[in-house]
Amino acid sequence: MSGPLVLGIETSCDETGVAVLEGMSVRSSVLASQVEMHERFGGVVPEVAARAHVEAIRPLAHQALTNAGIHPDQLDAVAVTRGPGLVGALMVGFAFGKSLAYSLGVPVFGIDHMEGHLMAPRLSFDEYEPPAVVILASGGHSQIVHVKGWGDYEVLGGTIDDAAGEAFDKLARFMGLGYPGGPAIDRDSTEGDPTAVDFPRALKDRPFDFSFSGLKTSVVTYLEKAKDEGTLPERADVSASIQEAIVDVLVEKTFNAVEATGVERVGGGGGVLANRRLRERFAEEADRRGVGLFIPETSLCTDNGAMIAGVAVDRLNAGHEGDDLRGDVDPGLRLGA
């Protein structure tokens, strides 16, 4: 495998990620996770995140280059997330990336974090290419995207309130399961019965959209009533039922989009795609319908620097020359807008 050597930097939320790609192959990818710092707050605290990024970024960049076995002078470009995300967090990586590129005399590419997630399966699968339908689900976003070509995206639908990961976080917190909620509910569900409680699946009439606030209310109401009446089921059963409700919606809406667009490839990205039940259900459904499934390993689903570098590799291959030095972060950046 060969191709340009690109350093990718990701600091949009609570993970500092730096990676080196050679073409679409990952030479190194390192991560400084802040999960433990945010745990006691039950969510990502923006100022805590920004402080951690500025401490981690320099040593992490050094480690990524060392692990890749390359000298900074060998880099062909630097790629860095410019949005969407937390402004203070984005600013750290963006300032670092721009300055690094300038000092090395190579182009810098400001990357849409969501496009990074769309690109991530390419780092695992040679056969992943447009047209495809991709589900992006994390703590901050939940969208179904029609990838018509690289750089040509149509957002078909998404959440109208909470992101899927946010729903997991809030419900796990409500149940006293800890943070982050997705992995906590995933673990707790292992011994549970997903059919124990029939929580609602909202927005039946909107094929590509979902809503999780109704689920949240329904779980809270159900649990309080069950507690009062002394009919509380096993916690694992509630966890498994919540998980099943979220998974059902994500799978159904994604495959609605597959059907509507007629594509033969389905991809996935974002932290929620690390959920074991979701991966299992996607695999079953893709198999049943005979479409190709492209959900990369967990480390490429959650935030990472490699997917950011991947977008820049695609741009370089398409002949793009990089961004102007005047560029700034865009916390409200929206895919396809």
Partner: peptide, 8 residues
């Protein structure tokens, strides 16, 4: 961050 990257 700008100064650190430059120096590094």
């Amino acid at each position: 961050a700008t100064a650190q990257a430059f120096a590094a």
